[in-house]
Nucleic acid binder design. Structure first.
Length: 200
DNA sequence: CTTTCGATCCGT
DNA sequence: CGGATCGAAAGG
């Protein structure tokens, strides 16, 4: 799909609950505008996290880390995991809901050269095929935490025309509790997915 | 304070 | 399969 086919997402778009927003994010464009030019990719894999979900950072209520999840949809929630990698989330729902969607994989579109440099690898297939990888490739860090996806450096664009996509729901990965829930969404058979990507 | 442990990645 | 490497969260 062409770049011209994407338009900025409206605030309203993010107000739906995470399990509904997560599949809607598949096919959307994640874009970061840097001083050296744009970096972007089409989202192919997401996971939904809600307040009543034991795997969610918001499960125990609002804390110093998860506060963006409680500020309403349309913000970036970026946190450090395993002391090594950043993970990027799109907050969702109305203020106070404590919800977010983890973006796990993206198909690179713009700024491939910058991504390769940031990642230190050449295979495009592995540039953004994981939450930590895509943050590294995009140059997303905790300095972006809490910023608006409607007007900030990082933005989310939706397809102008709704396109029919084959989106699959399955189990999330890397978590201990809440495994039963089918809250991981992937673009079926996409070669750009993270590891641990099959159906289920 | 101190301890625990995680929504991951990479090399072996 | 294990190590890296940090800091939030929880426990004392």
């Amino acid at each position: 799909m062409k770049l011209e086919e994407y338009v900025p997402a409206e605030q309203e778009f993010f107000l739906r609950t995470a399990p509904l927003l997560a599949p809607r994010l598949i096919g959307c464009l994640l874009q970061r505008n840097t001083d050296s030019g744009p970096v972007s990719g089409v989202i192919v894999e997401t996971e939904a996290y809600t307040r009543d979900d034991p795997a969610s950072h918001s499960f125990g209520g609002r804390t110093g880390r998860n506060w963006p999840m409680f500020r309403g949809g349309g913000l970036a929630y970026v946190y450090l995991i395993y002391g090594v990698h950043n993970c990027f989330n799109v907050t969702s729902g109305p203020p106070g809901s404590g919800e977010a969607v983890l973006v796990r994989a993206v198909r690179p579109l713009q700024g491939l050269e910058m991504m390769r440099r940031n990642r230190g690898i050449r295979e495009d297939r592995n540039l953004c095929s994981g939450p930590g990888k895509l943050c590294r490739a995009f140059g997303i860090d905790r300095g972006h935490n809490g910023t608006s996806l409607l007007e900030g450096e990082i933005r989310l664009l939706v397809p102008r025309r709704e396109e029919p996509l084959d989106v699959t729901a399955g189990r999330r990965v890397g978590i201990s509790r809440g495994r039963e829930l089918n809250r991981r969404f992937t673009l079926r058979d996409s070669p750009w997915l993270s590891r641990g990507s099959s159906g289920s």
